[in-house]
Amino acid sequence: MRPFRYERATDAANAVALLARAPQAAFLGGGTNLVDLMKLDVARPELLVDVRRVTPRTIEQLPDGGVRIGAGVTNSDLAADPLIRRRYPVVAQAVLNGASTQLRNLATVGGNLLQRTRCLYFQDITTACNKREPGTGCSAIEGHNRDLAILGTSPDCIATNPSDLAVALAAMDATVQTIGPDGSRAIPLTELHRLPGSEPQHDNVLTHGELIMAVVLPPLPFATRSYYRKIRDRASYAFALVSVAAAIDLVDGQVRDVRIALGGVAPKPWRATRAEDLLRGGPVDEERLRRAAEAELADARPQADNAFKIPLARNAIVRTVLDLVEAAP
């Protein structure tokens, strides 16, 4: 671990200004991922700007029926919030499926969305990694890649995004509100993270100094019937091999709307729009679900160790949506 400076931001504008002046600075939220990466010498910030006191820690209902979640809300508080649990159960379930109680008590919503991949090679500075050191090569493609991505990869990087929360938020069409050197903006959650292409070092579209202030969930009445299913190598405290966030709006047995997003399979939370489009306007049954899932996964490009994720994701999509339908009143 290298020596670094630490400053506590006085307000959001101050936080942005502090970072804008220092190219090797980083925002500090709960620190549950960043501090680990600093110990591993993967992250080498010269300045940490603590934003825990300047990012909102409240969850509030909006006039249009949506909900705004402050970026400083801890994962534990988010998962326990009655409004979230009632209106967007998939969000609370996703959070509770991640990490451990101790980590969730510290980790913030903003930090959760910006956590880095857990690719073993990214976290090991003695190996090559294009995300950590652009141009050095990807150790994972020819190495241990059982946990890594099958969709949206590039010849330079096959890392997965590890967030469970982001998968649920992607399914809900959440937006991220930021403040940065160029002012404020709203970014759809599905556009926050980027695919690696030839620049895997950039996980997301935020500019240096841009700070997430809140996540907004739009009103989505049928999300009261939503579910997060995570499949992993042990029953808790493991990243997803495959996860599915789903919500469905059934009218007279016909799919009026459906939301499906996948985790553990791609460098970003993977909104399964192709599957959704195939399901809308028809009945929901195992055969249609299977075809929709297969269409979504048609472009999957597995590595040596992770071809199993294709049938696993297909079956997980089918089972998650069927469970939602069968649990319906």
Partner: peptide
């Protein structure tokens, strides 16, 4: 990882 020779 046999290329490197360590447990990853």
């Amino acid at each position: 990882d046999p290329r490197y020779g360590h447990v990853v």
